[in-house]
Design a binder for these strands. Structure first.
Length: 105
DNA sequence: CAACTGACGATAG
DNA sequence: CCTATCGCCAGTT
């Protein structure tokens, strides 16, 4: 079942520092598969509530939340704002300020 | 083993 | 900005 990839992804997500966000591509890349961004999303669905994953810190490459406005979008946005992550008027996150510099750790 | 599924990404128009 | 398409990969059925 849990191939090392999935485990690594969960591990990485847990390491995202408060006040920072990461993209699916980033996580997938860091986990060893630059093209497995979909699995990252899938894993979030699979175990965001089971493990204590800060799923709200994971966004898409556009700097936006992928969830529909009636399916968690507002909740995720609220959680991020509580951590000090603000959105611009296009509802996008400013990568220069909030993107997790994953290779610095 | 085959088909299907995704909270994606990049590209093309 | 938008939609349409294809690629990619792990996990399910």
């Amino acid at each position: 079942m849990t191939s090392s990839f999935s485990k690594r992804v969960k591990d990485i997500i847990k390491k995202i520092p408060t006040g920072k966000v990461a993209t699916y591509g980033q996580i997938a890349t860091y986990a060893g598969n630059p093209r497995a961004s979909r699995q990252v999303a899938w894993i979030l669905h699979s175990s965001s509530g089971k493990d204590n994953l800060p799923w709200h810190r994971v966004i898409n490459s556009k700097g936006r939340i992928s969830l529909p406005h009636n399916g968690g979008y507002e909740m995720q946005k609220g959680l991020l704002e509580e951590e000090g992550i603000l959105f611009d008027k296009n509802d996008r996150i400013n990568f220069d300020r909030y993107l997790w510099q994953i290779f610095e750790e």
